[in-house]
Amino acid sequence: MRAFVRNGGNILPVAALLVLALLAPRSQAEGLRPGLVSSDPLWTDRPVRIDPRKQAFERIEGEQKVGRFILRPTNRVQTFDSASFRDAGHLYVLSDVVAADPRQLCRRDGGSPVACGQQARLFLRRLIMNRALRCLEDFRLGTVVFVTCAIGEVDLAETIVSKGAGWAARPRLAARQQEAIASKAGLWIDAGCRAEGRCKARRR
């Protein structure tokens, strides 16, 4: 059974209207570049060499690393633990150090407690305050900048690990960590930390 519509006394089959509706988009798409509207395929089933000069897509520049730079933390510098600090509104983390929790408690061999985490945080603050740091940006995670820094020719991470204010995050500092453990420096005053090669959470 065919369906009809009445228009000013003239009867047109609905099928004719459907044909007109289908032809309109095709005529509008003529002359367009290949894409979702035109009839040309957007994807191919075989590798196609792309000429970048003929691509009209907007290109977004990736974030560039800063490279080497100088930091001059003042006596207002904020240190959050033994490996991270904020200076001039930027948060920096030393890449090669695993920081001690600033709330970490250690115990001497005799059992007396030591606020070793807080001591480690203060060690970093005294180390960098009012000094010129030569830093190299390693990478970024959001607003956090991971860096390798030195004061003169002295590597900051190496100093922290050697003094037992943190432990090595990379193999290059493993020997320094072993020396600090052997001398019971800083965090390594705690027998549990020495046994594990790091300090398990024991907080105030």
Rank of each mutant, 00 (worst) to 15 (best):
G89K: 06
C135H: 10
A83E: 06
G8E: 09
E30N: 10
L133W: 03
P13D: 14
A195N: 10
A180K: 03
V48R: 09
R126E: 11
S84E: 08
G89I: 00
R33G: 04
E63Q: 14
L32M: 04
P171Y: 05
C193R: 00
A115S: 13
E58A: 14
R121N: 07
C193K: 10
C199N: 04
A3R: 12
Y92I: 02
R194H: 08
V14R: 10
T79R: 12
T74I: 00
A132L: 10
E61C: 03
F123M: 12
F57H: 11
A165I: 01
A132K: 14
F57G: 08
V14S: 04
C106N: 09
L136K: 02
A150F: 04
I60D: 07
R170G: 00
G67C: 06
V114G: 06
T148K: 13
R86I: 00
A132C: 01
V144Y: 08
D155L: 03
R26E: 13
Q55Y: 05
I128L: 09
K163Q: 15
D51G: 08
E179D: 11
P34F: 04
L22K: 01
L141W: 06
F69H: 07
W167C: 00
V77N: 06
G166C: 03
D109P: 13
G117Q: 05
A15P: 03
